[in-house]
Amino acid sequence: MLALADIHHIAIICSDYQRSKQFYTEVLGLEILHEHYREARDSYKLDLGLQGRYLIELFSFPASAERPSYPEARGLRHLAFAVQDMEGEVEKLKAMDIAVEAVRIDEITGKRFTFFSDPDGLPIELYEL
């Protein structure tokens, strides 16, 4: 068995770098830690953090493939973020004209959760603490 210490980061490839950068920073509120343009790859790499902790690498690559299906494609199913106030966060998303699914109850934990999508359709979950 490996002796893993923690999750280091999550990597996401987007279709429209500026649109996704705006979404992850202005909608989700993630902090820009580093931004690099890699000329040889015609690609951006944006390192994003949450409360000072490195969390997501956002990449742009020319002509990247579409996600095969929603939401049950192999690979990353969704990103989940913990929130304290489900109603408040859902209202913020709706005020930004972001479609949000109805809030549901996790049948195992009894906690509330909901889903919305990033600009490329990657499902994002809010899970109430």
Rank of each mutant, 00 (worst) to 15 (best):
L4N: 05
A5L: 15
A5P: 04
I7F: 15
I7Y: 13
H8K: 07
H9E: 05
I12G: 03
I12S: 03
C14I: 00
S15P: 01
D16N: 13
D16H: 05
Y17I: 03
F23N: 05
Y24S: 11
Y24C: 10
Y24H: 12
E26N: 13
V27H: 12
V27K: 12
L28H: 01
L28N: 03
L30C: 08
I32F: 06
L33T: 06
E35G: 07
H36G: 00
E39W: 00
S43I: 00
S43C: 07
Y44T: 05
K45D: 12
K45W: 13
K45A: 13
L46R: 14
D47I: 09
Q51C: 06
Q51A: 13
Q51D: 15
Q51V: 05
Y54L: 12
L55D: 03
I56D: 00
I56V: 10
F59I: 05
A63P: 00
S64Q: 12
A65E: 13
A65D: 12
E66V: 08
R67N: 01
P68M: 02
P68S: 11
P68W: 01
P68D: 10
S69F: 02
A73K: 11
G75Q: 03
L76T: 06
A80N: 11
F81E: 00
A82K: 12
V83I: 13
Q84F: 03
D85C: 01
E87Y: 04
E87S: 14
K92Y: 04
L93N: 05
L93Y: 09
L93E: 11
M96K: 15
M96E: 14
D97W: 06
I98E: 09
A99I: 09
V100P: 07
V100E: 05
E101K: 14
E101D: 14
A102P: 10
A102G: 11
R104P: 02
I105C: 05
D106G: 06
I108L: 14
T109G: 06
G110F: 09
G110L: 10
R112N: 05
F115D: 02
F115R: 02
F115Q: 02
F115S: 01
P119S: 07
P119A: 06
P119T: 01
D120T: 12
L122T: 09
L122V: 13
